[in-house]
Amino acid sequence: MQIAPGSQSGRAESDHELRGRSLRQGRGPLHSMFLHPADSRKAEAMAEHCCATMTSQVNWHCDHHDDPFVCPDALVFCSVRFHEYGLIIHDGGASSVRIDFCPWCGKRLPESQRDRWFDELERRGIDPWKDEVPAEFQDGRWFTTLPQA
Rank of each mutant, 00 (worst) to 15 (best):
H31W: 14
R21Y: 10
F137G: 00
W104P: 00
G92R: 13
Q113Y: 01
M46N: 13
P147G: 02
F137T: 01
E136N: 12
P147R: 14
E48R: 15
F82R: 08
P103A: 09
W60P: 01
R116W: 09
V97D: 08
D91L: 04
P68Y: 09
D115V: 06
E44M: 12
G10F: 11
Q113W: 01
W129Y: 14
G6Q: 05
K42A: 08
R11N: 11
R108E: 10
P5E: 06
F143A: 04
E111H: 12
G140R: 04
R123P: 00
V58D: 07
F101T: 13
W142Y: 07
V76P: 02
N59M: 12
L109D: 03
A12V: 10
P134N: 09
G6S: 03
L75W: 07
R41F: 14
G93K: 10
D100Q: 13
C105P: 04
D131F: 02
D39L: 14
S22N: 15
P128D: 03
G92W: 13
A74E: 07
W142A: 00
T145N: 05
S96H: 15
R21K: 15
D127V: 00
D100N: 12
N59W: 10
H64I: 05
R24G: 00
A149K: 14
R11Y: 04
S7C: 05
S22Y: 06
F137L: 05
D115A: 11
D91F: 05
C105I: 09
D115G: 03
R114D: 00
L121R: 02
